[in-house]
Design a protein around this nucleic acid. Structure first.
Length: 797
DNA sequence: CCACCTCGAGTTCC
DNA sequence: CTCGAGGTGG
């Protein structure tokens, strides 16, 4: 025996062991036909481990022993999906499926298209990347464009091959070394937890006396398991995997039909569901749906529908996408799971604006994978429509996959002596009147900020991530701070000291009779309070947009806050604008303008703003009003906005040209109005209107504000017109080098308005990969179309 | 005046 | 996510 041989002997044995183990995995997970008893498998694994320990140089990253790494990570890196991970359009009825098929028939001009059909697994979509046949990275779907790197956790799933098997020749003989896979291959599929594994795990959890927490349902279990920071925990979870799609493919060819591609994936070592099949036309798809639906409860895993994909890849390419969903595939969902339960109470929630929302408190019921105890009833009308009463038995369903809703009452199970539910006349929190305005769907508590519920919600909104972004200020803390008098208004947040928080906590603990954690820990645990103080401190520097949104003005959400910011630029101006002036701005109509005006007219609100500024809230992006505002500051338009009787746009224009300024109108005698060409009755009506003190005051405020704005307006000479000023742009398809949000922000920065749908007013459409109907529409209307390259060139130049 | 679109607000569960 | 309501354009 040569020394050469003795060096290679362990290496040869290791390779042999790996091949045996991989083959066993393949037979078990892919072929579903195990040939190696568990004990034997374990023995091989132990031998391989021993060998690799003895000869560390033999250990390779794709060895089966390397499935469980040992280093818990502290966070998951973000992975960009070069080819976005799709979301599918849903179909809930036969008609929708028929429509889907008809569209394909019409567009492709083919009869009876062939579909690759498969179950829709209820798990977690992931993407696996193989380079030269070796698994290098795996990521969650995330938002489709970017997900989280969960490679270490995915490695622990035995159904996921760490390296690809050689493909087969036509005659079934294995390909030579290296296989026929592309140099880079991304495989998409679903990680799921088989029901048996789920049950077994929970059995163990129940036996563990609470040491192991039971899993809620297989779907959440799969998602939760992949998000474990420590792969050793993931390794203990019974996870499996099915492949069903491809992502990036480089340096190699893949079959040109979906079904052939799935076969190929199987050869390469990926589990592909045995339930995948092909079907022709809508009828074939619906038959498949019925067939799978009948088996659903007996399947070893959860599914929530079936998926139909046009089998022919060339056809897929031709059909393209609408937004982020392909036109060549659809998910046919099983009907939402419905359950019966009892309404134990109907409670009223008070929102930030005082909106009183009835909520059904339900006997806990397991629907669609979660235990539901609450369901919103939206408003009084909805309760009346359903005639839900306390004590009723109702059918509950999870609408749109998430939000529980009461579908109907089961009348035959209604107990005796019930009566229709009525909105209480007084707020359950503060006792103020609950009033429903004429023609409105919502009833509101009139308590305003004297109502603890509204105050809490207002502060919660103020602190929200998209508002002032005070991290860690949750509802409970806000309630406690309010209860113990630390929060008269949101401005008091910026007065809080560490000691205040600790004192608040002490009193809350005392009230609840809980042992303060500060004592339990044996030392003073102040970290949370320090963090909160720090978060409040960080929130001080903010933008006008966030600040306005945070104030919680009725009808002013993120978008309107942005509109106000771009047009007026400066809080000092905005806080004194009368509503006729606000109304000059596009997208701000009478309702919104009045709401803003009314908010700032409240002295209490002005004081809160003063306090916020005095306590160090700093708006970092104040600027002069938009130069565009100059054109809007038109006396005629402003006059028309006053809504004085009979003062139509035409009359207003007449007055404006004749008198030039608003001031003149405050005292101009009636006969001069007539002399200016106004009909006698209009002039009289105007003078009468002007008599009213409130109206005079409004006029006064209007011209004060007009002057203030005109003074603040930048010199027109300075106006460097933004390149996309006045242009409306629509984005469609997927851009590869930047996200839609980023593209939107960049275009807006150049003055463009980014709209959602194409009309003849659209200046141009930016079409990314797989652009859909918006592109069609643009072509139809002859709207200019840019591709990504042109956009990038423009953004750079 | 109506149809369409966009925005705001409220909501559930882990 | 879904509903209601406000704003705008045809």
């Amino acid at each position: 025996m040569t020394s050469h041989d003795s060096r290679n002997k362990p290496a040869a044995r290791a390779a042999e062991l790996r091949a045996r183990i991989e083959d066993a995995n393949y037979r078990y997970h892919v072929l579903d036909d195990p040939d190696l008893p568990d004990a034997e498998y374990d023995k091989l694994m132990r031998e391989l481990e021993a060998l690799e320990t003895e000869h560390p140089e033999l250990a390779t990253p794709d060895s089966p022993t390397q499935r469980v790494g040992s280093t818990p990570s502290s966070a998951f890196a973000t992975v960009l999906h070069e080819i976005p991970m799709l979301s599918l359009a849903n179909a809930f009825s036969d008609e929708e499926v028929e429509d889907f098929v008809r569209r394909i028939v019409e567009r492709l001009e083919i009869e009876q298209p062939l579909f690759s059909v498969e179950p829709k697994f209820d798990g977690l979509a992931i993407s696996l990347r193989y380079e030269d046949g070796v698994f290098v990275r795996g990521a969650t779907r995330g938002d489709g464009a970017r997900g989280e790197d969960v490679t270490a956790n995915l490695r622990t799933i035995k159904a996921i091959p760490l390296r690809l098997r050689s493909g087969k020749n036509e005659d079934g003989s294995p390909k030579p070394r290296g296989g026929d896979w592309p140099a880079v291959l991304e495989v998409r599929g679903e990680v799921y937890m088989p029901r048996a594994g789920f049950e077994a795990y929970n059995e163990k959890a129940r036996a563990s006396d609470g040491k192991i927490k039971p899993l809620v349902n297989p779907r959440n279990a799969a998602a939760g398991s992949l998000r474990q920071l420590d792969p050793r925990i993931t390794a203990q979870r019974p996870l499996a995997f099915y492949a069903y799609a491809l992502g990036v493919v480089e340096g190699g060819k893949v079959p040109d039909s979906h079904s052939a591609m799935l076969k190929k994936l199987r050869d390469w070592g990926f589990p592909v569901s045995a339930l995948v099949d092909t079907a022709r036309g809508a009828a074939g798809c619906l038959a498949y749906y019925a067939r799978i639906g009948a088996q659903r409860d007996a399947l070893p895993f959860d599914i929530d529908g079936v998926v139909y994909k046009l089998d022919d890849v060339a056809g897929q390419r031709e059909l393209g996408f609408v937004g982020r969903t392909p036109r060549w595939a659809v998910a046919h969902k099983f009907p939402a799971q419905e359950q019966q339960t009892r309404v134990e109470a109907i409670e009223v929630n008070i929102g930030r604006t005082g909106a009183a929302t009835p909520t059904a408190r339900l006997a806990p019921v397991f629907v669609g994978g979660v235990t539901v105890t609450n369901a919103t009833l939206h408003n009084t009308d909805q309760v009346a429509r359903l005639d839900v009463r306390i004590g009723d038995t109702v059918i509950v369903r999870r609408a749109g996959d998430v939000i529980p809703e009461v579908v109907r009452v089961v009348p035959e199970l209604r107990p005796a002596r019930t009566h229709p539910w009525q909105m209480p006349s007084h707020c359950p929190i503060c006792g103020s009147d609950i009033v429903r305005e004429e023609g409105e769907a919502v009833a509101r508590c009139t308590g305003g900020l004297t109502c603890a519920a509204q105050r809490t919600q207002a502060v919660f909104h103020f602190a929200a991530r998209r508002a002032m972004d005070i991290d860690g200020l949750g509802e409970r803390y806000i309630e406690d701070l309010g209860e113990f008098g630390y929060l008269g208004s949101v401005a008091d947040l910026y007065k809080l000291k560490l000691d205040d928080l600790l004192e608040m906590k002490r009193r809350a603990d005392e009230r609840d009779g809980t042992t303060p954690e500060t004592v339990k820990a044996g030392k003073i645990a102040t970290k949370w309070a320090e963090n909160l103080i720090e978060a409040i401190e960080l929130s001080r520097r903010t933008t006008l947009e966030r600040f306005l949104y945070a104030l919680g003005i009725e009808h002013v959400g993120e978008s309107t806050a942005k509109t106000l910011t771009t047009w007026f630029g400066d809080l000092a101006l905005i806080r004194h604008l009368p509503w006729p002036l606000l109304k000059l701005v596009p997208d701000i109509g009478g309702e919104v303008a009045r709401a803003i005006d009314a908010f700032f007219e409240q002295p209490g609100n002005q004081r809160v703003i003063d306090d916020l500024l005095a306590r160090g809230v700093e708006i970092t992006d104040a600027h002069a009003p938009s130069p565009k505002l100059g054109a809007k500051l038109d006396v005629a338009a402003l006059l028309a906005n006053l809504e004085a009787p009979k003062l139509t746009e035409k009359r207003a224009a007449q007055l404006a040209t004749h008198f030039g300024t608003l001031e003149a109108l405050l005292d101009v005698p009636e006969h001069q109005l007539v002399a200016a060409g106004l009909p006698a009755d209009t002039a009289a009506a105007f003078v009468a209107w002007r008599e009213d003190e409130a109206h005079r005051h409004l006029l006064q405020r209007c011209f004060d504000a007009l002057h203030a704005l005109q003074a603040a307006l930048p010199e027109t000479a300075d106006v460097a017109a933004l390149p996309l000023e006045g242009q409306t742009v629509v984005l469609t398809g997927t851009l590869s080098s930047l996200t839609r949000d980023e593209a939107k922000a960049k275009l807006e920065a150049l003055g463009a308005k980014v709209a959602g749908s194409v009309s003849k007013k659209t200046s141009f459409v930016v079409a990314g990969e797989a652009a859909g109907s918006k592109l069609d529409k643009a072509q139809e209307l002859g709207v200019e179309i840019w591709d990504e390259a042109k956009l990038l060139a423009f953004l750079v130049g």
